[in-house]
Amino acid sequence: MTDLALLVAGGGGQLGMDLYHRVRETLGDGSTLYAPTSAELDITDQAAVGAAVTRLAEEAAEHGRRPVVINAAAYTAVDAAEADESTAMRVNRDGPARLAAACTALDVPLIHVSTDYVFPGDAERPYEPSDPTGPRSAYGRTKLAGERAVLDICPRAWVVRTAGVYGAWGGNFVKTMAKLEANRETLSVVSDQAMSPTWAGDLAIGLLELAMRIADGSEPARRVLHATNDGQTTWFEFARAIFVELGADPERVRPCGTEEFPRPAPRPAFSVLSANSWISEGLTPLQPWRAGLAEAFAQHEDAFRPA
Rank of each mutant, 00 (worst) to 15 (best):
K175C: 08
V118E: 02
R290A: 14
E259P: 03
T162C: 05
R136K: 15
S274D: 13
R24W: 10
E147M: 11
G134N: 11
G50P: 03
V159N: 09
G11R: 01
E40G: 13
V159T: 15
N183V: 12
V53D: 06
T76A: 14
G217N: 14
T104Y: 05
T228C: 12
C154V: 09
T54I: 05
R184W: 04
T104F: 06
T104I: 06
D302M: 11
F304E: 02
A275W: 00
A204C: 11
G206H: 06
A60W: 00
G11W: 01
N183M: 08
Y75E: 08
V165M: 09
T32A: 14
P264M: 05
S191F: 01
T176H: 13
R254T: 11
R65M: 15
R290T: 15
P96Q: 01
A269M: 09
A5L: 05
G121Y: 02
A200G: 12
L151V: 06
A239H: 00
R24I: 11
D302S: 15
Y117F: 15
D131W: 07
A275L: 14
A74T: 00
T228L: 03
G12T: 07
G95V: 02
A241E: 09
M89P: 03
M195V: 09
Y75R: 00
V190P: 01
S191N: 15
L207A: 13
A88M: 06
M195N: 10
V150D: 01
F238T: 11
T176A: 14
A204V: 10
G16Q: 03
A194S: 15
L56T: 05
A239W: 00
T76N: 09
D152G: 13
E209Y: 05
T233N: 06
P262R: 06
T228R: 03
E301M: 06
V108P: 01
S196H: 07
R148P: 00
A239N: 10
N183G: 14
T258E: 15
L7Y: 03
P285Q: 10
D42N: 14
D107N: 14
R240W: 03
A303N: 10
I153L: 12
V159F: 07
V189N: 15
A48N: 07
P285V: 04
D131M: 12
R98I: 02
V150H: 01
G217Y: 08
A5M: 08
H112I: 04
A221Q: 15
G11A: 12
L151Y: 04
G247V: 10
A100D: 07
T233Y: 04
E251C: 08
S86G: 04
A39F: 02
L207Y: 00
I205H: 07
S137M: 11
A248C: 07
L210T: 04
H226K: 01
R136C: 14
R254E: 12
A47V: 11
L41W: 02
D192S: 09
I111Q: 00
A265N: 07
V159G: 04
R141H: 13
C256A: 06
L33Y: 01
R22I: 04
P120C: 10
E62L: 13
Y127G: 08
A291H: 08
